[in-house]
């Protein structure tokens, strides 16, 4: 078989599938974002308007003038911050964990991967509910602290940003651990031995050899955590008490209670554009680094 044909056959299923059932729907959505919203939800298919994008930054005041409205910027900024914090937290916990896992015997490594994945066989909603049971006032954690005779007032963690942070970190931790673990596992052990032989101490080995070689895993993990973190809306709603809106909740609201499909679609594209921009910047840096070597 010719290489080109072979490539086409092998790549066909995945790309056609994604093209047909994701790219095409997204195109449709992009089209919807340029339409006028219908009087009772839905859209008017033949009436175009830029309202949806204008609404992101501006609102009409009583005199029908466009004035700046920072509500949506606030919500976007909060989501970015929360996703960033979640990424850092999962990184702080995930890297040492993966490091420890990667240097165990092969049999134990397999078991550990198994152990880390098991919690994710429960449903994400259920996991969030479980955290609600644990964190609520008079919940499991409260009960545990009392049983240990630790003094203090009843816990007020549930329905705060702390609870959202715990929920998100919990939800995405394996997505951080696994890619780092795969990267670490692939490192040629002789490189590390050589570094020690050349007189490097443990921390230098970590900083100069292991960390750079794990960079793809770290980057992969960060992307796997940051991006779904941006769109998360189950944890903020259930654990955060829905007191502060996130992008995911805002978009859902547009397609739900607000019945404003064009604005929802426009918000979705602003979010998508941000994500793509971040990825592109990351790719550029990565390429330049490789060119520098």
């Amino acid at each position: 078989m010719k290489p080109a044909l072979r490539r086409a056959v092998l790549l066909g299923p995945a790309t056609l599938w994604i093209g047909l059932f994701l790219v095409l729907p997204l195109t449709l959505m992009a089209y919807v974002s340029t339409l006028e919203r219908g009087p009772s939800g839905g859209v008017l298919w033949d009436r175009h308007s830029a309202d949806a994008y204008l609404q992101f930054l501006f609102e009409r005041d009583l005199m029908d003038r466009l004035v700046l409205n920072t509500d949506y910027l606030h919500i976007f900024a909060r989501s970015i911050l929360l996703a960033g914090v979640t990424t850092l937290l999962t990184l702080a916990v995930g890297f040492p964990t993966a490091l420890w896992m990667a240097f165990q015997s092969e049999r134990l490594r397999l078991v550990l991967v198994f152990v880390v994945t098991v919690p994710f066989w429960t449903n994400i909603l259920v996991r969030n509910y479980a955290w609600m049971l644990i964190l609520r006032t008079g919940g499991t954690l409260d009960w545990l602290l009392t049983a240990l005779h630790l003094p203090g007032p009843p816990l007020e963690i549930l329905y705060t940003p702390w609870a959202t942070g715990i929920g998100l970190t919990y939800s995405f931790l394996p997505y951080m651990i696994l890619p780092i673990f795969v990267s670490l596992e692939k490192i040629d052990r002789r490189l590390i031995e050589a570094a020690y032989d050349l007189g490097a101490d443990r921390w230098r080995v970590l900083a100069r050899v292991i960390l750079p070689l794990t960079a793809p895993g770290l980057a992969g993990g960060a992307i796997l955590v940051f991006i779904p973190g941006l769109g998360a809306f189950i944890s903020p709603e259930l654990l955060g008490g829905a007191k502060s809106m996130m992008i995911g909740g805002l978009i859902q609201q547009q397609f739900g209670q607000s019945r404003n499909w064009p604005f929802g679609a426009a918000l979705a594209f602003v979010l998508l554009a941000m994500v793509l921009l971040a990825l592109w910047a990351h790719a550029l840096r990565y390429r330049r680094e490789r060119a520098d070597e």
């Binding site: 609102e59 509500d71 809106m245 805002l250």
Partner: peptide
């Protein structure tokens, strides 16, 4: 609908 959405969003922004 527009007004109450505006109120709700600003309440939770």
């Amino acid at each position: 609908l527009d007004l109450r959405e505006k109120v709700w969003t600003r309440l939770q922004r």
